[in-house]
Design a protein around this nucleic acid. Structure first.
Lengths: 256, 256
DNA sequence: GCCTGTTCCTAACATATGTTAGTCCGAACG
DNA sequence: CGTTCGGACTAACATATGTTAGGAACAGGC
């Protein structure tokens, strides 16, 4: 592996404005400076969305993959006239790297709030697979993190009722935003409406409203106007049965 | 890509007793004979379990990955004294290939009924990554299929109530077993108890019992004594909101 | 400034599901 | 042949959640 000094790492990371958050807080130091340069070079174009928009449509056959640079996007499966959020992404995440191997997308990808993304052509990723086994492994790794989060969501949906599901979602997002330096001491910005929170927790907006109020009145967390303020961190983790091990962060984790 | 003739393919597949079901029914023909040989050669040992056993434990640091050769295994997350099945595997599936890159397992892997597995050392997979980009891509692909199934399970848990969840599970298993030639015309063998079905559908065994009875009395599917008999295939797919696209099968799919 | 749409919020009622407490049955085993 | 044990099954009751039907607060456009 590669030895790196913390300060030097921060300096070099600034040299990669588009991909600097990729695996930040995870095993990013498994990539050396050259590999980070290769990764940054994969991004051949950038796009910005200010309106809510379906960035990628289910069934689309893609020849490039998308990395989230700024903002929030959701992976959505429409079924029975309803919109189901199956995953949420924070900056630094590839949102459709799986399409590199699967080609066809099995779900939509939609923007939430203002979003900036970068595109990496599959042909360029192909070259990485042939000549950069370590970087290839890290790309694979990032899709495996998605899968680990999916499994945790399955557990959450099978095990917890609405308040636990919401608490888990909040705790997870807080942790993931902390990895990429986008969370505050006591909370974080959250552009999701109650309807969207409901879509991500498998409930209705009416019930999500009850649940938000319940957690607020219980003095656990205040979710309002795009801002989450955590009041009782331990209680939040307890209600949400949140153990961050599945996020595979490095170093001591904020929530235990 | 590689041109292959159907008959020849069947013959060569018999030469790979341990890995012949890997990606069968999916994009397996993207692998040529040499690559299939390399894959088969990855399996350095085989083990058989006749008793229900935890094959792999959460938190374990692995130096090999496990392919399911025969039988059924479940991925399980224990939480709050309960056992939650987050994924089920059929022969041909790698059950912990993600541990190659993640190293630490975030869940248990348990056998259901009699099971035979093979082990592929990570060092050998490392070599594949360096010298067999196409095979490496197929290994990646297989973990992305797992993730796609995870997402469908999330949708199922968010969207459907107990009878829909059960119908979806049955329809999915039937399709996946069909891919690997282990399903019959009107059903398949299923070693899961009602308790385990409940664990996979996020409900209780009592409610699963109601649900099994309901689907039986409605003339949709009969689940009993380890055997599933599908009576009304279309209704099963309708109740379970089952669209097999997410399984990325090739050719015409059994259920539509 | 007012209109218009979206989000947040509430109430009342119906229903799915969980919980507790069992009985019944067949397979495995002595 | 009886015992034992796990799984299948049922009933009665409590509760979480969905559904329908709205009102209140707020932001953006004109």
């Amino acid at each position: 592996m590669v030895d790196r000094i913390g300060a030097a790492q921060t300096m070099t990371d600034d040299a990669y404005p588009l991909t600097r958050r990729f695996l930040q807080g995870r095993s990013r130091d498994a990539l050396d400076a050259r590999e980070r340069g290769v990764l940054e070079g994969l991004i051949q174009s950038v796009e910005r969305f200010t309106e809510p928009v379906t960035i990628l449509e289910r069934g689309a056959v893609l020849d490039q993959s998308t990395i989230l640079i700024e903002g929030t996007v959701a992976r959505v499966i429409h079924e029975g006239g309803r919109r189901h959020i199956v995953a949420l992404h924070v900056p630094g995440d590839f949102v459709d790297l799986h399409a590199f191997a699967l080609k066809r997308l099995d779900h939509d990808v939609v923007s939430i709030g203002t979003v900036q993304v970068g595109y990496a052509p599959h042909a360029a990723i192909d070259e990485v697979l042939k000549s950069e086994p370590n970087l290839a492994r890290m790309l694979w790794y990032s899709t495996l993190l998605d899968a680990a989060m999916h499994r945790e969501w399955i557990m959450k949906l099978e095990h917890l009722s609405a308040d636990g599901r919401l608490a888990h979602l909040i705790a997870e997002l807080w942790q993931r935003l902390s990895f990429v330096d986008l969370a505050g001491e006591s909370g974080f910005a959250l552009p999701l409406t109650q309807q969207e929170l409901a879509d991500a927790c498998g409930t209705t907006s009416i019930h999500m409203n009850r649940t938000v109020r319940k957690l607020r009145e219980a003095g656990v967390v205040d979710i309002s106007r795009g801002q989450v303020t955590v009041i009782d961190r331990e209680e939040l983790a307890r209600i949400g049965a949140f153990d961050p091990a599945y996020l595979y962060g490095q170093g001591p984790l904020k929530l235990t």
